[in-house]
Simulated scan of single mutants.
Amino acid sequence: MKILFIVPSYKPAYIYGGPIVVIARLAERLVQLGHSVTVYTTTANGKTELQVPVGETVMVNGVAVKYFKRITKDHTHVSPALYRATWKTVRDFDVVHIHSWWNFLVIGAAMVCRMRGVKPVLSPHGMFCDYVLTANNSKKKQLIHNTIGKGLLKNTFLHVSSHMEWQESIQYNPKWKDDGAMVFNLVDLPVKDYTRKSNHVFTISFLSRIDPKKGLEILLYALARVRFNYRLRIAGSGEDEYVQKLQLLVQELDMDDKVEWAGWKGPEEKFQFFAESDLFVLTSLNENFAIVVVESLYVGTPVLISNNVGLSKYVNEKNLGWITGIENIDEVAEKLTATYHAQEERSRISREARNVINNDFNETKLALDYVELYENSK
């Protein structure tokens, strides 16, 4: 099968977080299964550009990637060169898979597909959640949807990675109820084992981009109300101004001696970081999936996540952790206290989680599920 991915950015533009890893992992696994995958993307790398050959095919771990210049340096990623290439070649592929939404790059690509009589698969990667729709330029998004977006979405087959994302997306296009499917994201999990650490103090970890969306303030306020001894390790990076705001909050809550700013953790470091924790916490305002949840469970660390995290239904059904609302700080504090006292349950999760994750997130199985999804999208 010849497959074309159209995505605003591609590795090594890791500045854009989890979706970059997820998309690349899927492309590479499909190639390993014998399929041909081409990626059309831009040189976007935040406010700068990737230093890569432009307009030429570059082989990246078996995937044929073409990076095109963008004429805007912001999140719109407008690239006339990519549109021209899509127009010329889109019919040469068996499947076209568009990733993301709301930026002009993918909306323009979707328009080209419709004009060329091609129905693409669309993975919005959380772009239809309430948080994204209301947090930034909500009026512009509504205008785009009402003028061109609604028609373009009707010409797509929906792919989502979680039950929550499914519910959010079909509100935007009810037609997807009969024209879409859910398949988990692929997660890059190491083969090696990680030794779990026995901590004298209950150790809670956070690892992600440090951003208001991640709900770190909620976690800090909740921890200020618990009555047990703990240590909170915060790993990740973010805008200096926001990180400083959080550091000031830690001081105001008199938690300096309990909070460690662990810095960014790379692919190798992060799994050991999880393994050294008794509990991973993610009280996000919204996450359509959350790779870190799978990564933490893989090394046997139980999770406490908000009900706004896409994998919350999965964690609850598999009994791999605790789910909390985040509207009430007392509820979060009570759930933290419950996990602290549930030592036997945490031990059970530590023993069983890896086998569950290995079964449910087997990359070959998931990649075959994507192939079936592609076949059903036609």
Rank of each mutant, 00 (worst) to 15 (best):
F206H: 09
Q272D: 15
F202L: 06
V201M: 01
L207Y: 02
M164A: 12
E168M: 09
A222H: 01
L248T: 07
I170R: 00
L223M: 10
D179T: 05
S169M: 02
P174C: 03
D257C: 06
W261L: 12
K270Y: 05
L220V: 06
K270F: 05
F206M: 03
A224C: 04
L220C: 05
D188N: 15
Y242C: 10
I148C: 07
K270L: 11
E168D: 14
G149A: 11
K265T: 02
E239H: 13
D240C: 09
R209F: 05
A262W: 11
I148P: 06
Q251F: 06
W261A: 05
L223G: 03
Q171K: 14
K270S: 07
S161L: 04
K265N: 07
G215I: 01
A262R: 05
I170P: 01
N155K: 09
W176H: 00
Q167K: 12
E269V: 09
D256K: 11
S208F: 02
F271Q: 08
A235Y: 15
Y194E: 04
I204Y: 00
G263F: 13
R227K: 15
R196P: 06
I204Q: 00
E269D: 14
L220A: 08
V259Y: 00
V201R: 00
G180P: 03
W176C: 00
S161F: 08
W264C: 04
K177W: 00
S237E: 12
H163R: 14
Y221M: 09
I218N: 10
K214N: 07
K150F: 06
F206G: 01
R196V: 11
K154A: 14
N199E: 12
Q244W: 05
K270M: 10
F228P: 00
D256C: 13
G236I: 07
T195G: 13
I148F: 15
D193Q: 11
D211K: 09
K258M: 07
L223D: 00
M255Q: 14
V183P: 03
G149P: 14
V187C: 04
G238F: 06
V250S: 06
F273D: 02
Q247N: 08
A275F: 09
N199M: 14
Q251S: 15
Q171E: 12
V259E: 02
L216K: 09
L186P: 00
L249C: 06
L158F: 06
G151F: 14
V226E: 10
K270D: 04
N229V: 11
